[in-house]
């Protein structure tokens, strides 16, 4: 299988090319995704190559998502883009009341195999309507699949898996990652099953569970802690539904301490669900589990204000260090 040096954004593009090639029922559409190639350049070249199967739409999220539900019911496999996750809110009905119900209500006679590509999260200067982390909203909805890649390889693999899957799936990307460093990406490999976790770093003192862009900050924090003799295991869970609870429990049985890190605000965040699952599984812990996220507040545009809210590597390291020291058995 060919290996290619790709950025995260290029990896998404490569996956789209592959999917258009191998699944003739795919369509790619959304605002500015066709002729312009996407506001982040992620859909570049698709329109030229695949013609009418790739097109621009009006600024009409309800129509984009609703038409994707309808086309999917009729056997197409739409891959639609919602430019910012924040904009999905103007059309939540089509996701929550419509897409998520198709299979269940029809007793499996119908399905809606659509993929919604979107991106979310903070970036310097982004306003309150362009910086929210909304994964928990979608994770609360049975019938949807949700994943959040943080590496070029996962940006490629998760999208391929999502589109091959027969459930409505949200692939939540992150615009701060699109133009990051190139990495070796294996393209054209077999379609991986949905789900699974990634142990990004091994360690014995504490398990950090994280996803999305926070993965990189958690790894940076783990590096800092290692310099100080504390060994954090970083388990990234790019698939949030299905969620690999087993992988988290397995790590915790070895480390005995849990910190969940996400960019979304704390209350009702998916970190609460992770902690609840761990508590329910009865894995004995050496210290109460810790959640690290943005406090419950709107997101300000001024960088000095936003930095005080969104967890950075320094804050993660500090809080995890305190967690490990809390009941230091040594």
């Amino acid at each position: 299988m060919p290996d290619r040096e790709l950025t995260y954004g290029e990896a998404v593009n490569a996956a789209l090319h592959r999917l258009m090639e191998e699944l003739p029922e795919t369509l790619v559409y959304g605002e500015d995704v066709g002729v312009p190639g996407g506001v982040f350049g992620v859909t570049r070249g698709l329109r030229k190559r695949y013609g009418d199967r790739v097109f621009d739409t009006p600024i009409s999220e309800s129509a984009i998502l609703g038409s994707a539900v309808g086309a999917a019911m009729m056997g197409r496999r739409p891959i639609v883009e919602i430019m910012w996750a924040d904009f999905s809110l103007v059309a939540l009905d089509q996701i929550v009341n419509q897409a998520a119900n198709v299979r269940y209500v029809s007793g499996g006679r119908l399905s809606a195999p659509l993929t919604i590509r979107t991106q979310q999260g903070g970036a310097p200067g982004a306003c309150a309507q362009h910086s929210q982390c909304l994964e928990a909203l979608f994770l609360h909805v049975p019938g949807l699949r949700v994943c959040m890649p943080s590496t070029p390889q996962d940006a490629y693999d998760l999208l391929v898996t999502a589109v091959h899957g027969d459930d409505p799936t949200l692939v939540i990307e992150n615009r701060t990652l699109y133009a990051g460093a190139k990495e070796r990406v294996r393209t054209g490999g077999p379609v991986a099953p949905m789900g699974g976790a990634r142990t990004r770093r091994t360690g014995s003192d504490v398990t950090i569970v994280t996803w999305g862009a926070m993965t990189h900050r958690a790894l940076e924090a783990a590096g800092t802690l290692a310099d100080q003799g504390m060994h954090a295991e970083v388990v990234e869970t790019p698939w949030l539904n299905p969620f690999d609870t087993g992988a988290v429990l397995e790590s915790l049985r070895r480390t005995g301490r849990l910190a969940v890190v996400h960019e979304a605000n704390l209350t009702g965040g998916f970190g609460a669900e992770v902690v609840a699952r761990v508590a329910g599984a009865g894995v004995p812990l050496l210290a109460p589990p810790l959640r690290i996220g943005t406090p419950d507040v709107r997101m300000p545009a001024a960088p000095t204000l936003a930095q005080a809210l969104v967890p950075g590597a320094g804050r993660i390291a500090d809080e995890v260090r305190a967690l490990v020291r809390q009941e230091a058995p040594r």
Binding site: C127, A128, Q129, R298, P300, A301, A302, T304, L305
Partner: peptide, 15 residues
């Protein structure tokens, strides 16, 4: 992003 901003830095260019 100044404290003296019309929205104290909460809004930014678009808000």
């Amino acid at each position: 992003g100044r404290a003296s901003g019309v929205n104290g830095g909460r809004g930014g260019s678009a808000y």
